[in-house]
Design a protein around this nucleic acid. Structure first.
Lengths: 249, 249
DNA sequence: AAAACAGATATTGCGTTCAATCTTGTGGCT
DNA sequence: AGCCACAAGATTGAACGCAATATCTGTTTT
């Protein structure tokens, strides 16, 4: 319930998922583990856009050398979640309104295709998994608080990733990974209601159409859904938010 | 004709573009430079799939430390052009037939969308640039030899990249970068006639439709074109090429 | 007083080094 | 003779340290 109490503890340190060495999962690929932790933190908006990710600081938090941190940051840079500037360091990226539009334009292109592939390959077990996930989603939607909202955004993204996974194309799945992560960042930045779900039940409707194997309808619902998410954005806000403007109030 | 003699010279060394320190272009981002050199070499098939890219060896060739090489290899791994195996090293990727199909399925999804965007934004200057590029392409097509064939494959890919660039969506452009590179690898591996252009003039036709701003026709031509490329593949060949089979002849 | 310069500090870029892991070659055992 | 075990060599993984660059502070100059 009051899970947002967790967020209090962030004095001046980075406040990533685990405060210190969450134990090496399997001792392999620590860079990947750090990348995942950072990505979750970024997508969850525990790390806000523009935040500097100092190599030394992250290294201390995870108890690894800067070498490993560097690898993780480079991966995130490829996904577009952080921006690295030469001799200056890595920062959580701060997508411009234009980039935000490009993210959704890309999704509009790819996701209908994914839907078509899903309908070709989806099994009864998949449908059950989707329904179960949907229940989880609506649960979050009814809760209050920043933590629940974050969980909702994340769950909403996961729904799309599940679709991509069922579609069975590894390349498209990777693209969707990136697009969903970037979307979360955009929504966190520009979202008006904070959640992409202002009264709609898009995922449930979409799933119905998928189960009915109605390709055109499912694709139309997907496009409508993306439209809903986009409509919830207020791209003006951040447009000219320079330090000067920010302090002018 | 017997231009393939060029490939003979690769005794045991890697045979990348420049034999040694091609001068730091601007002293910045040497890793990126190495990545580009390696990518060109892979796409051109001067480095064949499966080749091991030893950190030390590449480092020596470019006269940098392994640290920088590592960064370059990691980038290529993200693009899917090399595969890194833990504690074993990096290898030029060797896409399976299934991966090959996924590459083209992805392109079928994305490129028609790019075409639509292009027709919305293309200028007369762009058209001129395309025509100029096309002339270059046909020139290569009429030449003989492995070098010309490589140049043709590369030019053909560049045409699609030019389209992506005109479309004006940086994210899709990055996706296309990856897809075109992977396509080149797949064509090099599975291509029957070696070039994607067995008698067709797809690019010219496509460009005509774009200039006429006929979206449906241009999209149809794009799909047909991708179909042509795919039809030129022989995915059986490599299908079961295990060591055992390879030696069975 | 504001701008500009200069030194001090912090951070990144990257070469080097040591430990861990994989590969290869040799020798003993069945 | 064939197979397994073991050791030597080679290669990657990751920490460390130094040099280069950017940032910050305090002072000087206009």
């Amino acid at each position: 319930m009051a899970a947002s109490a967790l967020e209090r503890g962030m004095d001046k340190s980075l406040q990533i998922a685990e405060a210190r060495v969450p134990l090496d999962p399997n001792q392999e690929d620590r860079a990947q583990f750090i990348r995942d932790s950072l990505r979750d933190a970024i997508v969850d908006r525990r790390l806000s856009p523009g935040t500097k990710l100092s190599e030394a600081e992250v290294g201390t938090l995870f108890d690894v050398s800067r070498t490993v941190v560097r690898a993780a940051l480079q991966m995130l840079a490829f996904e577009g979640l952080v921006k690295v500037e030469r001799n200056r360091g890595a920062f959580v990226s701060d997508p411009t309104p234009e980039e935000a539009l490009q993210v959704f334009a890309s999704r509009r292109l790819i996701e209908p295709g994914i839907i078509a592939a899903v309908i070709e390959r989806v099994t009864a077990a998949d449908i059950a998994a989707f329904r179960s996930h949907l229940a989880e989603e609506t649960r979050h939607k009814q809760e209050r608080g920043a933590a629940a909202r974050r969980a909702e955004i994340k769950a909403s993204g996961d729904f799309h990733l599940m679709l991509a996974s069922v579609a069975g194309n590894a390349i498209l799945q990777k693209f969707m990974d990136e697009l969903v992560a970037r979307s979360s960042l955009v929504i966190a930045l520009y979202g008006r209601s904070g959640a992409s779900s202002c009264g709609h039940n898009d995922h449930a409707d979409l799933l119905d159409a998928v189960e009915a194997r109605d390709v055109p309808r499912a694709q139309a619902l997907m496009l409508r859904h993306i439209g809903h998410i986009e409509a919830d954005l207020d791209l003006r806000v951040k447009a000219g938010l320079t330090l000067k403007d920010a302090l002018a109030l």
